[in-house]
């Protein structure tokens, strides 16, 4: 899929662990792992909003389109 999830990059910039973020945004670490590894088929606006809120970033920092 040409949509790349850069969540691990933003997480390392913020020095935050995956399980910490998962707890803060209210999803399981397994689901966050699916999202991080690019296996997710879709992302809810509510999830994206929670990630951006906790990581103080924009959706474009998380998601990237590559040809």
């Amino acid at each position: 899929m040409p949509i790349i999830v850069n969540l691990d990059v933003v997480l390392s910039k913020r020095k935050m662990k995956s399980n910490e973020l998962a707890e803060k945004i209210g999803i399981t670490t397994a689901n966050l792992s699916i999202l991080k590894t690019g296996k997710a088929k879709a992302i809810r606006f509510s999830t994206l909003e929670a990630i951006c809120r906790e990581l103080h970033c924009q959706p474009s920092d998380i998601l990237e389109y590559q040809e």
Binding site: I27, N31, L32, I34, K39, A40, K41, A42, I43, R44
Partner: peptide, 8 residues
């Protein structure tokens, strides 16, 4: 259902 399960 598979797509829905992989919607995070």
């Amino acid at each position: 259902q598979s797509d829905n399960d992989l919607t995070i």
